[in-house]
Design a protein around this nucleic acid. Structure first.
Lengths: 101, 101
DNA sequence: TATATTTAATTACAAAAAGTAACTTAAAAT
DNA sequence: ATTTTAAGTTACTTTTTGTAATTAAATATA
């Protein structure tokens, strides 16, 4: 495998948001801040991977994690500005899916 | 894992174009019809997976495969209308990548 | 004090997908 | 018969995912 890529930034974007479940997680978060279990229930993703993906998205600055020290603990995830900036792209894919699938 | 998904069509789209390398393969084909080796050289994808992905994309009707019986054989891949319809979404991601990565 | 409850994870292990490199096929030129 | 070249395929290793059980934390309850 060579390492020449036409557009390294697009490659990184694809690697990030093209990772399994990530697109759907972001789509789900377009509806607003949500807690861990809400996202887990809304998507066919297991807790293990949801946790992993949310960590990646947080690290990349697309998602913000907020802990509320209630009983039991409540953790809410929401899109940052960088994450919300993907809304157009996601809506575009959604619209393609509606028209072509 | 549950199976309830807000938008089954978006889920399918994400499963398809979110598969590793698929986004970049489509992006590469936006430049026009290209042969197997051209795509393989342009992207950090191995022949094994490129072959697999192109087959999936052909099966889903996003890509067309044309064989030219020259010596040695020439095989060209190009986007169908359905595939080209993704251009907006891909450009959108590209533009996000430029602005945010 | 010990046990129960609830959300948000983490761990352990099996299964599937991806990475890597060598090999095969086909068709014609030497 | 051997060589050449593009387009794959195969065999094998490594990484990622799927699944289910387990842990952590903070309080309420017996």
């Amino acid at each position: 495998m060579n390492e020449t890529t036409l557009c390294p930034r697009l490659a990184k974007a694809m690697d990030l948001i093209g990772k399994r479940w990530t697109g759907l997680i972001l789509y789900q978060l377009l509806d607003g801040s949500q807690r861990f279990n809400e996202i887990e229930s809304a998507l066919p993703v297991s807790g293990r991977l949801l946790s992993e993906r949310l960590k990646e998205l947080e690290k990349e600055g697309l998602v913000e994690r907020k802990v509320y020290s209630e009983v039991p603990v409540r953790v809410e995830y929401s899109l940052t500005e960088k994450g919300r900036a993907l809304e157009g792209a996601i809506r575009n894919i959604e619209s393609w899916a509606t028209n072509w699938l």
